[in-house]
């Protein structure tokens, strides 16, 4: 079986193929950006939600939890925690507040972050906003 296999052709395919698929990806991104307003719940983003996201980030919550399935797998999914806690921001706040400083012997426990009342309300609102993003019906059930 004889065949021709040249380096220049392989190179052309590498460059051509890359450019082709980068352009395609950009086109799809463009389309996605146009569609997002319908499903990313951006109307619900208030200054409070913005503060909540900042609290979320500055306490590295993603280091234990997942949010919409992404993050660490050490603690429960929080994308739907608002719904799991019976559509209650108060329940979320109460849980965060109640964490013991020195943990629970032998068990995993969330640290006590000593958040202010404003921060607590903000993070709860952020989690409420997250739970209302259209995620194509994910997670499969309320347990996340």
């Amino acid at each position: 079986m004889s065949e021709v296999f040249t380096k220049s052709m392989a190179r052309n395919i590498y460059y051509g193929g890359s450019v082709f698929f980068i352009l395609l990806f950009l086109a799809l991104t463009f389309d996605t950006m146009g569609t997002l307003p319908e499903q990313d719940n951006r109307a619900a983003i208030t200054p409070q939600v913005a503060l909540g996201k900042k609290v979320w980030e500055e306490n590295n919550c993603i280091g234990c939890h997942t949010l919409l399935g992404e993050g660490a797998y050490f603690a429960p999914e929080l994308g739907n925690v608002y719904k799991r806690f019976g559509n209650s921001t108060e329940a979320i706040k109460a849980f965060i507040k109640s964490r013991p400083v020195n943990g629970v012997p032998g068990r995993r426990s969330m640290p006590q972050f000593n958040l202010t009342e404003e921060e607590l309300e903000a993070i709860a609102q952020f989690l409420k906003y997250s739970s209302e993003i259209d995620t194509q019906d994910w997670p499969p059930n309320i347990q996340g």
Partner: peptide, 16 residues
């Protein structure tokens, strides 16, 4: 062992 090194090095810090 959920409380190993807690609260000195919580999980999120160790993972990071």
């Amino acid at each position: 062992i959920g409380d190993f090194l807690f609260p000195a090095i919580p999980f999120n810090v160790a993972r990071m």
